[in-house]
């Protein structure tokens, strides 16, 4: 088991944000965290990323406690967060620079694999939103960490680009099979991408339900119109709707 969180609790001032969260990510597994806005998803990422430590409970990565240790996960934020003064390839190797020598050959190979070879010397301002997110994903991938944490990476994209990016992500991931923890507030996105989904309640967040997604891989876009996809989507929708109702 790659990542394991046991009975995590976290409060800020007097507000409890996370309440008894236990979850795990297996080696090579794609796990989605689905929850309403403001349910403490970013706090959870801050804990895994070592930006803060939990009040109670333990976070284990490869059986080691990682509280407050940064740089142990590959991270892809909601905003692409590319450095505007670095070219695409210089952005891709940024994380490698932090821990050692950057490997430009490997970066070039990856850019070629995702069809961005013509843009390796371009600056981020020249790229479209989807291209920027691809660069951000490759950067996370090349950080050489076994766990990739993706924080609503496609939420700022338009509908068509988002579906393209989801398919793209699946195709890259299916060849690569790194563990991914994917935060999203889109039910469809979670169902289309993940092996397993944790549904979070509103604040203070607990895990309301763990859903195993039964669809076989590789997944095609046609899955989005399949009957069983629709039924599961309806089920998740009802679960989440209860959460939002209670808050009113």
């Amino acid at each position: 088991m790659l990542l394991k969180m046991n009975h995590i609790e976290k409060s800020f001032a007097k507000t409890r944000v996370l309440n008894d969260i236990s979850m795990h990510v297996e080696e090579g597994e794609f796990v989605a965290l689905l929850g309403p806005s403001g349910s403490g998803k970013s706090t959870l990422f801050n804990l895994i990323g070592g930006m803060t430590s939990p009040d109670e409970g333990t976070i284990l990565l490869n059986d080691n406690i990682i509280h407050g240790q940064k740089g142990l996960i590959g991270y892809m934020p909601q905003q692409p967060s590319l450095f505007p003064w670095r070219t695409v390839i210089e952005n891709v190797v940024l994380v490698q620079e932090l821990s050692g020598k950057p490997n430009y050959e490997e970066a070039k190979e990856w850019l070629k694999k995702v069809g961005l070879q013509d843009f390796q010397n371009a600056y981020p301002m020249e790229l479209s939103g989807g291209m920027k997110q691809r660069v951000a994903f490759i950067r996370a991938l090349l950080s050489k960490q076994n766990l990739l944490c993706l924080d609503e990476p496609f939420s700022a994209l338009d509908e068509f680009t988002r579906i393209e990016m989801q398919k793209w992500l699946l195709s890259v991931w299916e060849d690569n099979r790194k563990s991914i923890l994917f935060v999203t507030h889109s039910i469809e996105e979670a169902l289309f991408l993940a092996d397993r989904i944790y549904i979070l309640t509103k604040r203070p967040a607990t895990i309301k339900e763990e859903i195993i997604v039964p669809f076989a891989r590789p997944r095609e876009e046609s899955l989005l119109n399949a009957n069983e996809f629709f039924q599961l989507k309806q089920k998740l929708f009802n679960l989440l709707r209860d959460e939002i109702k209670v808050g009113e």
Partner: peptide
């Protein structure tokens, strides 16, 4: 957001300064 990214990526204080 760039600063947050650098910290998540494990940048030291001097790397944060020189690179960002």
């Amino acid at each position: 957001e760039l600063k947050y990214y650098m910290e998540m990526a494990g940048a030291s204080k001097s790397q944060l300064f020189w690179k960002l």
